[in-house]
Amino acid sequence: MSRAFGKSVALSNLTLTIGNGELVALLGPSGCGKSTALNCLAGLLPLTGGSIYLDDRRIDTVPPERRDFGMVFQNYALFPHLTVRQNIGFGLKIKKISKSEIERRVNAAIELVQLTLHADKHPNQLSGGQQQRVAIARAIVIEPQVVLMDEPLSNLDAKLRHEMRSEIKRLHSELGLTTVYVTHDQEEALSLADRLVVLHDGEIQQIGTPEDVYLNPTNTFVADFMGYRNLISMELLSGGATNNYSISCPGIELVANNISAGTKAGKVLVAIRPEDLLVEKSSKNNISCTVTNVEYQGKDFAVEVSVEPGLVIYVRTPIRLEVGQKTNLTVRPDRVLVYPRSDNHPNV
């Protein structure tokens, strides 16, 4: 499907097949088109190209009220004049389901999201997390074919976000509802999704399992987004023995064996995650450097080191280092990701 706003294309040729019971996360920075994609799916925005099928039924021409998709909104969009119970029962009431059936299903949903004590309150009497639970219950109680979630946790504080994340995971595995989940938080996407779709500028960058996307990003954009903070311009000397390639730049010489397809000898971009750099002296892949900045972050330290003037590398390590100290880093050859230089990344 595609969606354009005037001349600006918000979404181009997003092609995706979602399996029954799957939880797919659309992941990307703000403005990448992920919310547009979700609104198109829900029918709140008409497509400007392409089509959507639910099983064999074409649904992109069907208005939202007849798509049978439950949606959880970023700001919850609860009905402020209705109680929790009435909010959750709204969809069932519209569907003209019998009173006793509504009561049974609403009670079950309230229990599921653990709001039994708050069932007769109004939304403004609830905390952010409780409101979010109501929004989720309201979307799933109608037993929709697909649940759409638009950054449902972005308004919650860190602790609540983690709680609700587990909650959503639990509900998904309990109910097995097909879910499309939009987020800009890679950690959230990794922990929840069966499959990740990374978007940038309205285009798919990578589709894969969380592990796949995390360990083997297909390009420097995905790498950067997934936390490969070190993106270094280097030179690839043509291949050595058994897939070990030599790469170098002033101050660093490395052996890598995780080369992206289509990478040719010459200028390349190398991506290394701060966590993959180990502070130790090694005979292979050794980088000698000077510590320039240390931030204590609880379980470990975020350290900046300088290899050469103008070449800063980010490291995360549990070892306490001092600013000005000379040290050595090393990295495994399979954790050095090499991409073609032509892959223009804004940060480089």
Binding site: G43, L44, E65, G70, I142, L148
Partner: peptide, 15 residues
């Protein structure tokens, strides 16, 4: 009135 509420109602099946 937040227009998101009408959108929410429409995904819940309201005409």
């Amino acid at each position: 009135i937040n227009p998101k509420m009408e959108e929410a109602a429409s995904t819940l099946g309201a005409t």
